[in-house]
C-alpha cells in the first residue's frame, strides 16, 4: 500500500451544480462525517491535490476552467464526478447551456450518483477513487524506462 491511499487530498470544484452536492461535499469535512480520519483534506489548490471532486454539469463558461484545473493537478490524479449532474447532466441535461456530464471534458474515474449525493456515498466514491489512484501510481512507475506516464487520460 502506498502513502497515496492514506493521504488523498481533494479539490472540489462546483461546475454548475445547484449547491446541493457542494454542501454535502463540504459536510464530509465537518464533525459528523470527518473525512480527515482517512487523511482526506480539502486543499483548494489543484497543485496540491490528488482527487478532483467535481459537482454539476459542464457549461459553456466553466469548460475551460475544469480543463485548466485538471491540468494543474499533478499525476497521479483521479476525477470523481459527484451527483447526477456531474455524471450525466441530470435534470439540467436539456438546458441550452449544459453540455452534459464531466466526462465530456476530462476523463472521469468514479461516478457518484444522487441528487443530491449523500455524504456517505461521496465518501464511498472517494474510497473507490483510492484504489484507482494506486493503480495509476503503479502504472506511472512502470513505464519509467520509456517515456513518462501521462496518468489519467487513458482511463
Amino acid at each position: 500500500m502506498t502513502y497515496l491511499t492514506r493521504s488523498p487530498w481533494i479539490l472540489h470544484y462546483d461546475a454548475s451544480s445547484c449547491n446541493g452536492c457542494d454542501i454535502e461535499v463540504l459536510a464530509c469535512l465537518t464533525p459528523l462525517y470527518d473525512v480527515e480520519r482517512f487523511g482526506i483534506l480539502n486543499t483548494g489548490n489543484p497543485k496540491h491535490s490528488d482527487i478532483f471532486v467535481v459537482t454539476g454539469g459542464v457549461n459553456e463558461q466553466n469548460r475551460e476552467v475544469i480543463k485548466n484545473i485538471y491540468e494543474q493537478i499533478p499525476d497521479p490524479k483521479v476525477v470523481v464526478a459527484v451527483g447526477i449532474c456531474a455524471t450525466s447532466g441530470g435534470v439540467f441535461r436539456e438546458c441550452y447551456n449544459i453540455m452534459g456530464g464531466i466526462d465530456r471534458i476530462i476523463p472521469v474515474d468514479v461516478y457518484v450518483p444522487g441528487c443530491a449525493a449523500r455524504p456517505e456515498s461521496i465518501i464511498d466514491g472517494i474510497v473507490k477513487a483510492l484504489g484507482i489512484l494506486e493503480e495509476k501510481r503503479a502504472r506511472m512507475r512502470q513505464p519509467d524506462t520509456g517515456k513518462k506516464a501521462t496518468g489519467g487520460e487513458t482511463v
Binding site: 470544484y13 489543484p46 497543485k47 475551460e64 476552467v65 480543463k67 485548466n68 491540468e71 494543474q72
Partner: peptide, 9 residues
C-alpha cells in the same frame, strides 16, 4: 505548467 489563476485559463 502555468501558474494557478483561480482556475482561469
Amino acid at each position: 505548467v502555468s501558474a494557478y489563476m483561480g482556475g482561469r485559463p
